[in-house]
């Protein structure tokens, strides 16, 4: 099936998400809450575009919009830029300290909305990627807490989590760097808990926290790693060379 994005003909499968097709064809669409490993979040609305399936253009959320029929798409039309600017203006009220959002606001000429006072002081837009990352890839240590204007991301009872392994997956997927993660040479601190870092026994690169490595090892029924990937490969190659070499 063929669709037209910004005048360019693109081939796609029925049911594919519009954002994927655009990106594959080198057409940029800005996103915040989209992460390839955790697709379908669809909560920030920054990726909106205009789609015409023959009945006039309509605004859709491209990261969760499955293509059903031939259509023409505009990702940067005047209307798209205006609506995206409004979405960004509102997100800025939610997360006034996010430099990324401030930058996007400049790019799309987002209105100031002086009548609205910022809902928050932080950087979090409550997209929920972090809680999904933790639940799906790690241990489910964090979740959304409360609702409405009081909604936030937190550990149970706002205490250092008993199950968090300090893997940092949550901080890594966060689009606005809202989750503080600090590291020293030996430790990593996140969600109010400090973890011991383990380094590669051969080259000294950081492998992760002790708890994180133990969890990974337990899941695949092995001993925790002591080497980084590069040194591990080198070691295997050495063994192979010893066995098969002359």
């Amino acid at each position: 099936m063929n669709i037209t994005i910004n005048g360019k003909t693109c081939t796609c499968e029925k049911g594919e998400f519009l954002l994927e097709v655009a990106r594959r064809n080198g057409i940029p669409i800005p996103t915040l809450c989209h992460h390839p490993a955790l697709a379908g979040q669809g909560s920030c609305r920054v990726c909106l575009v205009e789609v015409d399936e023959g009945r006039g253009p309509k605004i859709v959320v491209s990261c969760v919009y499955p293509i059903q029929r031939e259509c023409t798409v505009e990702t940067d039309s005047e209307r798209v830029r205006r609506e995206r600017g409004m979405v960004l203006a509102l997100l800025r009220k939610r997360a006034p300290e996010s430099r990324r959002i401030a930058g996007m606001c400049r790019l799309y000429g987002a209105p100031e909305l002086p009548r609205l006072t910022p809902a928050d002081t932080g950087k979090c837009i409550l997209c929920g990627l972090c809680t999904r990352a933790c639940t799906e890839l790690s241990v489910g240590a964090i979740s959304t807490v409360n609702r409405g204007v009081l909604k936030e991301i937190a550990t149970p009872y706002h205490e250092p989590s008993t199950v968090c392994v300090g893997c940092g997956a949550c901080a890594n997927v966060c689009p606005t760097e809202a989750i503080p993660l600090t590291e020293t040479a030996e430790t990593r601190t996140i969600w109010g808990k400090t973890f011991q870092l383990v380094r590669c026994a051969s080259c000294g690169r950081i492998l992760g926290t002790r708890e994180e490595l133990e969890l990974a090892a337990k899941r695949c029924g092995q001993e925790p790693e002591t080497l980084c990937e590069r040194c591990r490969k080198a070691a295997t190659a050495q063994i192979l060379a010893d066995v098969y070499g002359d």
């Binding site: 639940t135 489910g140 964090i142 959304t144 807490v145 609702r147 550990t155 149970p156």
Partner: peptide, 19 residues
């Protein structure tokens, strides 16, 4: 056998529940 965090999310979401 579920994360405490998911129950905490639920308990703080519904007004009828109180911690």
């Amino acid at each position: 056998d579920c994360p405490l965090s998911s129950l905490y999310a639920m308990a703080t979401f519904y007004k009828a529940l109180s911690l």
